[in-house]
């Protein structure tokens, strides 16, 4: 099996047929649209990033201002071992 499909065209592609696809007005319109869309997407991305950054900084600031968290005075669990009976320990 070969890597390519090599074809021979009897007729050459006419200039007129290519000209049908050539339309700078349409192309530049599409390009401008795409450019605007890209700019808007970029702007949106910048705004979202800024919002995230400001939120993180805001909460971070209050956390620093409040100081370290106080440790809760919870009673430590105690373990008591009860040895019953007359077990020979010695």
């Amino acid at each position: 099996m070969t890597k390519y499909d090599i074809r021979i065209r009897r007729e050459s592609f006419s200039k007129g047929r290519i000209e049908r696809h050539k339309d700078f007005k349409k192309f530049s319109g599409m390009y401008e649209q795409k450019r605007t869309k890209n700019s808007l997407s970029r702007l949106l991305l910048i705004i979202i990033t800024l919002i995230i950054l400001i939120t993180v900084m805001y909460f971070g600031y209050f956390k620093v201002k409040e100081g370290p968290e106080k440790q809760q005075d919870t009673p430590k669990p105690t373990i008591s071992l009860i040895v019953r009976g007359d077990a020979n320990l010695g």
Binding site: T2, K3, Y4, D5, R7, I8, R9
Partner: peptide, 12 residues
């Protein structure tokens, strides 16, 4: 897919 090379007979 397989790559295509479509050559014009006149040029070949």
């Amino acid at each position: 897919t397989k790559k295509i090379f479509s050559l014009e007979e006149r040029q070949v």
